[in-house]
Amino acid sequence: MLLSALFACLFYAAAAVLAAGLAVKIVLYARTPAPLKIPTTPAPATRSGVLWRMLREVVLFESLFGANKWIWLFGWVFHAALALVLVRHLRYFTQPVWGLVEIAQPFGIYAGFAMLAGVAGLWARRFLVERIRYISTYSDHFMLALLVAIGASGLAMKYVARTDIVALKAFMLGLMVFDWQPLPADPALLVHLALVAALMAVFPASKLLHAPGVFFSPGRNQADDSRERRHLAPSARG
């Protein structure tokens, strides 16, 4: 029961850091003025055009595709697989399980491998490509190591040392309503959960801020309408 309490507290803390940290950053991004119009070509002329551009950027990584096909391939496969894996994991937090999550289930399993392959490709580039080796910091490697460990421990539970998934689901459902249930004491599971909590906690203080950041990037989210519409940031009005 001590273990359950420990992990329950760990997840409450990690979730709180993630939510509060992201909220602070997002409010900061939203409140900081953008004094001038600086969209990058090809910039759409309308707000709906901007939404379409952002959608392509976020779903397809359009700019990255134009920049480097290898980074795009590894990066896109990793993110798409991660999305599927996350959707699949919703089954441990919902009762009854949503229809969409049921559909994603078989794909989500294989996505685990794709996710690892993508991360491995990105990590290999940090060693093999001279330019990327030059710009890599310890935290870049640390982040990739974290993702590999999370993916590997997750797959280990499926293919090597299966955990008591029914008990885990009971723990997670209980966690959400503050009704703590016993957590299976399997090493792979404990490692997996601890690392996920760590990832959640470092999110708002790391380069993972690219996730909210992309939506606030003036180069991408501004419309090319500077002659038609006078752009005045609050700070410029004074």
Binding site: T32, S63, A67, K207, S217, P218
Partner: peptide, 24 residues
């Protein structure tokens, strides 16, 4: 400047060192 420019703030936070720009 960080308080005056959203671009600066977002750009300094968001880079993941992917390397797409390195040969541009």
């Amino acid at each position: 400047l960080l308080g005056e420019s959203r671009a600066l703030r977002v750009y300094l936070d968001s880079c993941v060192h992917c390397g797409a720009c390195t040969d541009k």
